[in-house]
Write a protein that binds this DNA or RNA. Structure first.
Length: 409
RNA sequence: CGGGGUGUAGUAUAGUGGUAGUACGUGUGCUUUGGGAGCAUAUAGUCGCGGUUCGAUUCCGCGCACCCCGACCA
């Protein structure tokens, strides 16, 4: 991608109608565009980041047997009436169709996924199975806030698992937990993300959240540093010690909920009459689990914890581009390097604009790609380019012929 | 949904009951070139509707939008 072709631009100042740090930087750097409260457009650079987060999630969920599907966002009222949530789900966006029927915009998809899987699964031989989607969710929050951390429209990966019994659900639940941590590891959040005990549903005492420690978070968690788990403040009265070791000296921190997994049991299979036949031909209800994770919120979280005064600092897996190639009035030589990087399948954004050095270097910092490569008269005089990591102050000179090897060796 | 705040050019900001200013941006020309450069010139604005007034961007009322706190929530 050539910056001269990119239709977005960076702003010199933070937009004044946002105080949320993630929204300010992302808007200033041209990653997102605000349409209304809690409603954002993902611009080319922001969409690349979002897609990278989704890619990581897909890879890890596929690896635990999740089968990707895509359910509708527009969902008829009748499905929600079956579980009683048409009336009880406050945040549901309800609307009327031209046929004068009622619909809801999907806020979560248990009501859709359950009958869908039900039409295909009848026997214990068909279980366990798990399906997921990455889709836009709608929740009519009374107050959206904090940029990407709480919008009325946001992206979510929602995985649903279906089992014959509690034991196989429990086993899959553990597997999903591990997959979640792999995802957070790849997204650079592992060290500050804690498995957190939270209020459960009807079926289990607790649900589990994944909470990333961050001052911008809305939740308070109480961390057991011995076990590396936490307890959500919302249940601290009934569970004031570490559930694993009983430690009562917990450390309170603000945190962002970056994932949530539930044992649903028969909460949804029962109202839909989703049963299976076991080995003896006996009809039994299917046992379900659900596993949520919001890529857009995670994107905001990464910004909150990974930035400096210069702007964004993307972990390599999610950066819009790996290399930010800057030509300081040396486009002829830099064009060749740009071709070479592209041929080597190294994702590169090339600042070929006719601008001063200051503006180019500042915008490179702002956009936050992991490696900045500068080509100037000075570096070319030594047959080299200058490479600087976004996370480092040091620069190194690398010979033109060695540029590709810098990453591929 | 309760409470508070803010709406002036694309962005960030001054100011005023009497022709709305600055910076950046954008256009043009020239200069400059390793941390958002300089000169010249042009471009572009008072959230909406009512009211008070000779005259409202300013005062008043009602809307609308956005932000923050709370409640609620991935």
């Amino acid at each position: 991608m050539r910056l001269s072709q990119l239709f977005t631009r960076t702003l010199k100042e933070n937009p004044k109608d946002e105080t949320s740090l993630n929204a300010q930087i992302l808007m200033r750097a041209g990653f997102i565009d605000k349409i209304g409260a809690g409603i954002y457009t993902f611009l080319p650079l922001g969409l690349r980041v979002h897609n990278n987060i989704c890619r990581v999630i897909r890879e890890e969920i596929d690896a635990i047997g999740g089968q990707e599907i895509l359910m509708p966002a527009l969902t008829p009222k009748e499905y929600w009436q079956i579980t009683g949530r048409w009336e009880n789900f406050d945040a549901l966006f309800r609307l009327k169709g031209g046929d004068n029927r009622d619909y809801a915009l999907g806020a979560t998809h248990e009501e859709i996924v359950t009958p869908t899987v039900q039409r295909h699964v009848f026997s214990y031989k068909d279980l366990s199975t798990a399906v997921y989607q990455i889709q836009t969710k709608f929740r009519n929050e009374l107050r959206s806030k904090a940029g990407l951390l709480r919008g009325r429209e946001f992206s979510m990966k929602d995985l649903y698992s279906f089992h014959t019994d509690q034991k196989t659900l429990d086993a899959y639940y553990e597997i999903a937990q591990k997959a979640y941590f792999k995802i957070y590891e790849r997204l650079g959040l592992l060290d500050i993300t804690f498995l957190t005990y939270a209020s459960g549903g009807a079926f289990s005492k607790y649900s589990h959240e994944f909470q990333t420690v961050c001052d911008a978070g809305e939740d308070t968690i109480h961390i057991c540093d011995k076990c590396k788990v936490a307890v959500n403040q919302e249940i601290i009265e009934e569970q004031s010690a570490c559930p694993l070791c009983g430690n009562v000296e917990l450390r309170a921190e603000k945190a962002i909920e970056v994932g949530n997994i539930f044992k649903l049991g028969t909460r949804f299979s029962e109202p839909f009459g989703f049963n299976y036949l076991d080995e003896s031909g006996t009809e039994k209800p299917v046992i379900m689990g659900c596993y949520g994770m919001g890529p857009s919120r995670i994107m905001g979280t990464i910004v909150e914890i990974s930035h400096d005064d210069g702007g964004l600092i993307w972990p390599e897996e999610v950066a819009p581009f790996k290399v930010h190639l800057v030509s300081l009035r040396q486009n002829e030589a830099t064009d060749l390097l740009y071709d070479r990087l592209q041929k080597a399948k190294i994702e590169v954004i090339y600042d070929d604009r006719d601008l001063g050095a200051g503006e180019k270097l500042v915008s490179a910092d702002l956009m936050g790609c992991p490696y900045r490569v500068v080509v100037s008269a000075k570096t070319l005089a030594e047959g080299s380019v200058e490479i600087k990591k976004r996370t480092s102050q040091e620069v190194e000179l690398v010979k033109l012929g060695e540029l590709i090897n810098y990453w591929t060796k």
